[in-house]
Design a binder for these strands. Structure first.
Length: 796
RNA sequence: GCCCGAGUGGUGGAAUGGUAGACGCGGCGGACUCAAAAUCCGUUGGUAGCAAUACCAUGUCGGUUCAAGUCCGACCUCGGGCACCA
C-alpha cells in the first residue's frame, strides 16, 4: 500500500475510534501535555510548528501506552493584529479569514497524525470562549484589579494602535518595525505590579527550566534598596528617591527628577523656568528609542532648587534629566557621581562635585559601586563595608523618619486596551451620570458587530467607535443613554487562560469547573517557543494567580514544567522567511516523503532545544530508515520471545527510548532505534516479538507505518496496547570491550566479562603487547580498574 | 554594558569525569544495471607509515585529577534577550 493510503487509513481509524479522547474523571493517572496553540496565519503550518507538535505528540503517545490518561489538546489563538491584517489585506472579514485558516491548519495537523483530542478544540475568537475572557475581565474589575488611567503609551503610527512596553521593545513596533512615539491615552490597566512578588515566589512551585525561570525573574526585575526622603530648601514639599545603595548617601552631590516628575513645575525657580520648560518640551518629542540612543551624551537642566541631604543637611542642586525614568522607582534619584557611571558622566559635564565615599582600593572610581569596599568621607559609616553600611544607614533613615527599606520592581501594570477591531470587546459601559459600569453577566458575550469596516482609524480610536449602533447602549445602573467601551483586549488575553478551558471546554455555566480543574490539576508539560517564555508565561501566571486568589482555580500555579524548543532554520542557517526564499512547506514534504518521514526527521534533526537548519538530504536519511524498517518485515518469523542474541540490545533500547522521550532526547531516541534496526538487519531472521517491540518503540515517532506493519502481522493496534517493559538486569552487556590506558593514554582494548574479577582484568591489561611496550622499564605506581569501564596503569 | 545559550570531522549532531566523533547526511571505492535511480557491501578527523603503530585533535590559555569535550579560573568568537531600572 502506498504511504498516503496508509496514513489516511490510520488517521481515519483514530478519528472514528476517538482513540485520543481524554476522559475527565478517569481513574487512570491524568497527564496534561500542552503545546502552545498557534495563530492560524494565512501562510499555514510552519515546519517549526511540526517540530514541537511532533515532539509532544511522541511524548503523549508513549504516555498513553504507559497507562496515563493523557490530555493533549489543540486550539487556535486567532485574535490579534496578524489575523486582522491578513483580513484587511485580503478584503475579507477577520471572522471568515480565521475560519478559513483554522480549517487549513487543522487539515495539516490531521495529515501529520497528531494525537490531539479534537473534541476539546476551540478558538479564542469563539463567542463561547471569549464570553469567559470577558467574564474574567469583569472579575478583575470587581476586585479592583482593572482600572482606567491616562498614561503615556507607546503608539505605533503605522499600525495605529497602542503597544505594550513588551510589544515595543527597543522603541520600535514589534510587528511592523515602525518607530514608536509617545502619546497620552486613557487605557484600561490590570494591576499586575501588585503580583510582582507572588509571581517571583510562585516560581518555586514550578519545575520550569532554569533559563525560563531566569527570564521570568529578569522581567519582574526585583531590586532591594531604600527610599530616601529629601526635603527641598525653602519649600514644604519633599520628594523621595529609590536607591539600592543608601550607604553612599554621603556621596550624593545632586539629585535628578525625571522631566515628567510632578514637582518640577512647583520647585523650578523663576530664573530657570524658561530653560526647564524648553527641556521638558524637547523630551516629549523624543521617544524611547531616541532617549536610549542618546545615552552617550547626558543632557539636563538645573531647576534652581536645592534638596537637603538628610545625613549632613547639605544643600545639593536638583536637576531634571531624561536619564531618569519617570516610570521606574519614584521618578527621582540621588546622584552619587563617584560611584555610578551615569552620575559620573552627568556630574563631569555640569561641573558638579564628586565625593568618593568608598575606598575600593582600585583606581577606577566607578568600580566601587558594584564591588565592595570600606566607607570613607561618610561620617558614621566610615570603616564599614557595603553590607554593614547599608544596615547602619537604614537604621539612621528610619530613626530620623527620612527613609526606609524599599523593594522595587521593573514590572509594571499591564496596559490592557488596544484600539483594534479584532479582539475581545471590553465589557464596560460609560454613563455620563454613573461613570464606568460593568455589563451584566447575563448579557455576555458582548459580540463583535458584523460590519464591513474594521480598518483602524487615523484618530487612534478603535474601529468600533465608528459603529454607533453598537456603541450606543443604555446604562445598566440608571437605564439612561450610555456608550460602550470601544477598545478591545490585547491578544495576550485569550492565551492567558486557554489551558484551563481545555480541561473543561464545553462548560456553558463556568469557564471551567473546579472539579475538572482539580482532576487535571496542572499542566504537566508545557512546550513553546523561547520568544513566549517571558511575557506570555508571565501574563498567564498572573491571570491564574488572580483567579486563585478569588477562589476560582485550585492551584496558584497551574503549569508545572515549561520547556522551549529551538527554531527550524532554513537550509542556509537563516530564519525561514518568504523574502529569503528558504521556506519549507510541510505539505510538500508530506506529499513527497510521507508524514512519518517528516515527523521522524523533525525529531532527529538535532538537539530539540536548539535551533537547527533544515536539510532535505538528512530528511531522506529518515525515509531510508523507515523503508528499512518496512523491509525488515520480510525477515520476520514466528516467535513470541526475543531472539537471545538480541535480548540485551532490546532491553537497552526500551530503556533508552523511554528515558529520551521523557527528557526531550528525541534525536538520540531515534538514533537508538536506528541502532536496533541495524542489529536486526545483521540477522537472517527476527521473531515477531523482536519486530513488534521495534514497531512499538517507533510508534510515537512514526505512528502510521508502524500501525500498518503491526496490523499486517495480525495484531491489534499499537496505540491501544501497552508500552514494552525492560528488565534492568538485561540491559547490561555480559561481555564488553574496555580501554586500557597507560598514564591516561589509550594503548589497547580488552574484552571483559561481567563477572570476572579485577585481578583477571588487570592481567589481561598487563599482557597486551602494546601495553607492555609502554610500561617496559618503568615502575608501576598503581593500577586503576573500573569494572566494565576502564583500566588505567600509572607508571613512572 | 548586563543576563542567558552555544563553540566538537566536510555536515546535523553523540558522549553518568572513563576507548571523543554514537547515529545520520555528504564524500570516496565497489556490487547489481545496457545505463540511471533505488538498494546493498566497504571506507571516511588530521599528519607520518606498507603496516603494527605514533603524534596531533572538542574556540584560546592556564589549573584540578590516575584520567577533562565534560569540573575550576581567565579570555576569544558567534547567537539570543534586556538595556540610562538608580
Amino acid at each position: 500500500m502506498e504511504t498516503k493510503k496508509i496514513e489516511e487509513k490510520w488517521q481515519k481509524y483514530w478519528g472514528e475510534h476517538k482513540t485520543f479522547k481524554a476522559e475527565t474523571g478517569s481513574s487512570k493517572e491524568p497527564y496534561y501535555i500542552l503545546v502552545e496553540f498557534p495563530y492560524p496565519s494565512g501562510s499555514g503550518l510552519h515546519v517549526g510548528h511540526v517540530r514541537s507538535y511532533t515532539a509532544q505528540d511522541a511524548m503523549a503517545r508513549m504516555m498513553r501506552m504507559q497507562g496515563k490518561n493523557v490530555l493533549f489538546p489543540m486550539g487556535f489563538d486567532a485574535f490579534g493584529a496578524p489575523a486582522e491584517q491578513y483580513a484587511i489585506k485580503n478584503h475579507i472579514h477577520p471572522k471568515d479569514a480565521v475560519k478559513e485558516n483554522i480549517k487549513t491548519f487543522k487539515n495539516q495537523m490531521k495529515t501529520l497524525g497528531f494525537s490531539f483530542d479534537w473534541d476539546r478544540e476551540f478558538s479564542t475568537t469563539d463567542p463561547e470562549y471569549y464570553k469567559w475572557t470577558q467574564w474574567q475581565f469583569l472579575e478583575f474589575y470587581k476586585h479592583g484589579m482593572a482600572y482606567k488611567a491616562t498614561v503615556p503609551v507607546n503608539w505605533c503610527p503605522n499600525c495605529k494602535t497602542v503597544l505594550s512596553n513588551e510589544d515595543s521593545a527597543g522603541g520600535v513596533c514589534e510587528r511592523c518595525g515602525t518607530q514608536v512615539v509617545q502619546k497620552e491615552k486613557s487605557q484600561w490597566m490590570l494591576r499586575m505590579s501588585d503580583y510582582a512578588e507572588d509571581l517571583l515566589q510562585g516560581l518555586n512551585d514550578t519545575n520550569f527550566a532554569e533559563k525560563v525561570k531566569l527570564g521570568q525573574i529578569n522581567w519582574i526585575g526585583k531590586s532591594i534598596g531604600a527610599e530616601v526622603i529629601f526635603k527641598i530648601a525653602g519649600h514644604d514639599e519633599n520628594f523621595s528617591v529609590f536607591t539600592t545603595r543608601c550607604d553612599t548617601l554621603f556621596g550624593a552631590t545632586y539629585c535628578v527628577l525625571a522631566p515628567e516628575h510632578k514637582l518640577v513645575d512647583i520647585i523650578t525657580t523663576k530664573e530657570h523656568k524658561d530653560e526647564v520648560e524648553k527641556y521638558k518640551y524637547e523630551c516629549t518629542l523624543k521617544n524611547d528609542l531616541e532617549r536610549t540612543e542618546l545615552n552617550k551624551e547626558k543632557t539636563g537642566v538645573f531647576t534652581g532648587a536645592y534638596a537637603i541631604n538628610p545625613v549632613n543637611n547639605e544643600e545639593i542642586p536638583i536637576y531634571i534629566s531624561d536619564y531618569v525614568l519617570a516610570s521606574y522607582g519614584t521618578g527621582a534619584i540621588m546622584a552619587v557621581p563617584a560611584h555610578d557611571e551615569r552620575d559620573f558622566e552627568f556630574a563631569t559635564k555640569f561641573n558638579i562635585p564628586i565625593i568618593q565615599v568608598i575606598d575600593s582600593g582600585q583606581s577606577e572610581l566607578t568600580e566601587a559601586y558594584t564591588g565592595d569596599g570600606v566607607h570613607i568621607n561618610s561620617g558614621f559609616l566610615n570603616g564599614l563595608n557595603k553590607e554593614d553600611g547599608i544596615s547602619a544607614m537604614l537604621e539612621f533613615l528610619e530613626e530620623n523618619k527620612c527613609g526606609k527599606k524599599q523593594v522595587n520592581y521593573k514590572m509594571r501594570d499591564w496596559i490592557f486596551s488596544r484600539q483594534r477591531f479584532w479582539g475581545e470587546p471590553i465589557p464596560m459601559i460609560y454613563c455620563e451620570s454613573c461613570g464606568w459600569q460593568l455589563m451584566n453577566e447575563e448579557d455576555l458575550p458582548l459580540l463583535l458587530p458584523d460590519v464591513a469596516e474594521y480598518e483602524p482609524t487615523d484618530t487612534g480610536e478603535s474601529p468600533l467607535a465608528k459603529i454607533t449602533d453598537w456603541v450606543n447602549t443604555t446604562c445598566p445602573k440608571c437605564g439612561g443613554p450610555a456608550k460602550r467601551e470601544t477598545d478591545t483586549m490585547p491578544n495576550w488575553a485569550g492565551s492567558s487562560w486557554y489551558f484551563l478551558r481545555f480541561m473543561d471546554p464545553h462548560n456553558t455555566h463556568e469557564f471551567a469547573s473546579m472539579e475538572a480543574m482539580k482532576y487535571w490539576n496542572k499542566v504537566n508539560w508545557y512546550n513553546g517557543g523561547m520568544e513566549h517564555t517571558a511575557r506570555h508565561l508571565l501574563y498567564a501566571r498572573f491571570w491564574v494567580q488572580f483567579l486563585y486568589n478569588i477562589g476560582l482555580v485550585p492551584n496558584k500555579e497551574m503549569i508545572w514544567t515549561r520547556v522551549s524548543h529551538g527554531m527550524v532554520l532554513g537550509s542556509d542557517g537563516q530564519k525561514m522567511s518568504k523574502s529569503k526564499g528558504n521556506v519549507i512547506n510541510p505539505d510538500d514534504i508530506v506529499k513527497e516523503y510521507g508524514a512519518d518521514t517528516l515527523r521522524c526527521y523533525e525529531l532527529f534533526m538535532g538537539d530539540y532545544e536548539l535551533d537547527c537548519p533544515w536539510s532535505t538530504d538528512s530528511l531522506k536519511g529518515c525515509k531510508r530508515f523507515l523503508d528499512r524498517v518496512i523491509r525488515l518485515k520480510d525477515k520476520v518469523v514466528e516467535g513470541d520471545s526475543y531472539t537471545p542474541e538480541l535480548e540485551t540490545i532490546i532491553h537497552k533500547t526500551i530503556k533508552k527510548v523511554e528515558y529520551d522521550l521523557r527528557h526531550m532526547g528525541y534525536n538520540t531516541a531515534i538514533s537508538a532505534l536506528m541502532i536496533l534496526t541495524n542489529s536486526y538487519e545483521a540477522k537472517d531472521s527476527v521473531t515477531e516479538a523482536d519486530y513488534r517491540v521495534l514497531l512499538t518503540l517507533l510508534n510515537p515517532v512514526a505512528p502510521h507505518i508502524t500501525e500498518e506493519l503491526n496490523a499486517q502481522l495480525g495484531y491489534a493496534p499499537i496505540c491501544e496496547g501497552e508500552w514494552p517493559k525492560y528488565d534492568e538486569e538485561k540491559t547490561i552487556d555480559k561481555e564488553k570491550e574496555i580501554g586500557v590506558q597507560v598514564n591516561g593514554k589509550i594503548r589497547a582494548s580488552i574484552k571483559v566479562s561481567i563477572d570476572e574479577s579485577e585481578e583477571v582484568t588487570k592481567d589481561k591489561a598487563l599482557n597486551e603487547e602494546n601495553v607492555k611496550k609502554h610500561i617496559e622499564g618503568k615502575e608501576i605506581v598503581k593500577i586503576i580498574v573500573l569494572k566494565g569501564r576502564i583500566v588505567n596503569i600509572v607508571v613512572k
